[in-house]
């Protein structure tokens, strides 16, 4: 028991850190689901492309050792923009190529699912053929300085950056969706798409915007992941994609604030699960959460019905 108590502070810190990344990923699933009632299983590859985009940008900038001073901020800004661009362009293209033609033909959700799996494999294989199947290291761009300790828990600079950047992005997205005309358009389509058309909303444009936003969030998650774990791989998106999806379902898919809550809850459940059982069990814990939620509470923690969800 004493052993477990010692692990509480580090578990909370790590849970919030990974949870922030899951939450950013969950936003992509939830936004797209809200608008199209479609689970974009290719979102994991949208993330993967983001990690590569930030890595290549680091290479292009010639960064081999940790930058110092103001240069850190500059490097961060540039790779964030690169990752966001890479991921959102990928997301928008996936929608254009894999989903839109099916949507125009009113295809079944099974057809969409198969199309998503096809696109996922395609993107993974392209990257595998081009960059190999091994882990690819990132240069260290931020020293893992310990700022202070809470018991055994270390508040480290890179973890603080992950959480702060993620929270800022979530805030910006929330303001956009709830406070702007286009954001209202997204919510209108999510709540009642034919009535949205009656109000003059161009559904195709809203769908593109939704994939763009979800992609941008995945891009930020990808940049943070690369900075924090310092590796990527052609299939890096697989596990993180399932975690993001689990977080979205946990919070109530289609619900933006639910996705945030689901991300942090999943991160915490996972690290505590790892502390109680063994660190190698974290993925088992996550996937058990997914199965249990789908079985017993498919509407998620916030439990709002989908149509009612405040998007």
């Amino acid at each position: 028991m004493h052993n477990f108590l010692v692990q509480v502070p580090p578990s909370i810190i790590d849970g919030i850190t990974t949870g922030a990344i899951y939450a950013l990923m969950a936003l992509g699933y939830t936004l797209v689901y809200g608008v199209l009632r479609l689970i974009n299983f290719a979102h994991s590859e949208v993330f993967m492309v983001g990690t590569f985009a930030s890595l290549f940008t680091l290479h292009a900038l010639g960064i081999t050792k940790t930058p110092t001073g103001l240069a850190i901020v500059g490097v961060f800004l540039i790779i964030t923009i690169a990752a966001m661009a890479g991921s959102s362009i990928t997301a928008v293209l996936v929608e254009r190529i894999a989903y839109r033609p099916l949507r125009k033909r009113n295809s079944s959700s099974l057809a969409n699912l198969i199309s998503a799996i096809g696109v996922s494999f395609f993107l993974q294989e392209v990257y595998a053929l081009r960059y190999g199947r091994d882990l690819i290291p990132f240069p260290r761009i931020l020293n893992k300085t310990v700022l202070f300790r809470i018991g055994e828990g270390e508040i480290r600079l890179d973890k603080v950056v992950v959480v702060v950047v993620a929270l800022v992005m979530m805030f910006v997205l929330d303001r956009f969706v709830n406070g702007t005309r286009l954001g209202r358009g997204i919510r209108a389509v999510a709540q009642d798409s034919s009535t949205a058309v009656l109000m003059g909303v161009n559904i195709d444009r809203i769908v593109t915007l939704t994939f763009l936003l979800g992609g941008a969030m995945a891009g930020v998650a990808a940049m943070l992941y690369g900075m924090f774990y310092e590796v990527t791989q052609y299939n890096i998106g697989f596990v993180i994609g399932i975690k993001g999806f689990t977080a979205a379902v946990l919070g109530g898919i289609g619900n933006i604030r639910g996705a945030l809550l689901g991300g942090f809850v999943l991160g915490l459940v996972e690290t505590f699960g790892g502390a109680i059982f063994h660190a190698q069990w974290v993925d088992v814990v996550s996937f058990s959460v997914l199965v249990l939620v789908l079985l017993f509470r498919p509407t998620g923690i916030l439990g709002e019905s989908l149509q009612r969800a405040k998007a």
Binding site: R184, Q191, L198, M199
Partner: peptide, 26 residues
């Protein structure tokens, strides 16, 4: 040309003002 649809065709998760703003979307 604008339509008020059959039944309860309002956006249920939006406030009154937000619904009206949707009317002015175009």
């Amino acid at each position: 040309l604008c339509q008020a649809p059959e039944g309860r065709g309002v956006f249920p998760g939006m406030t009154v003002v937000e619904n009206l703003e949707m009317g002015a979307y175009s």
